[in-house]
């Protein structure tokens, strides 16, 4: 569940930062087209991967409900953290991604 949460959060972060004004807010400079595309693609891939991480070990129905709950919770966490501590919000996403292989090893 932790793995799925980390992937969800990072996925939302990617999708959010692929939007001009949020990227500018966090980094202070506009994003290049390539940056935007990369962030967007990465964001969707991570959200997809979070579904894959959320399902094993549960009945299908329970897994899907947990995934939806994690999606909503992580999106809310990102959106509430971003305006107050933008750098921390991005750091959490990055560290979460870095930690995710280790988390995957432990939980698989």
């Amino acid at each position: 569940m932790l793995l799925a949460l980390l992937l969800c959060y990072a996925g939302w972060a990617g999708l959010c930062l692929s939007m001009d004004r949020h990227f500018l807010h966090v980094s202070g400079r506009p994003a290049s087209a390539r940056h935007r595309l990369g962030l967007r693609l990465g964001g969707w891939l991570l959200l997809g991967a979070s579904l894959w991480a959320a399902l094993p070990g549960h009945a299908l129905g329970v897994g899907l409900v947990q995934w939806s709950a994690l999606l909503m919770f992580s999106a809310l966490a990102w959106v509430l953290l971003l305006p107050y501590r933008p750098r921390l919000a991005v750091w959490v996403a990055g560290l979460g991604l870095l930690a995710s292989p280790a988390v995957a090893m432990v939980s698989l």
Partner: peptide, 28 residues
């Protein structure tokens, strides 16, 4: 405005907050 929440702006923040909890948790 999916990810938009602008605090400390009075009515604007309330509307942002209302939209954020509404849209992000809409499936629930």
């Amino acid at each position: 405005d999916f990810f938009t929440f602008r605090p400390r702006k009075g009515q604007r923040s309330w509307l942002d907050g209302h939209n954020a909890v509404g849209v992000l948790v809409l499936p629930f």
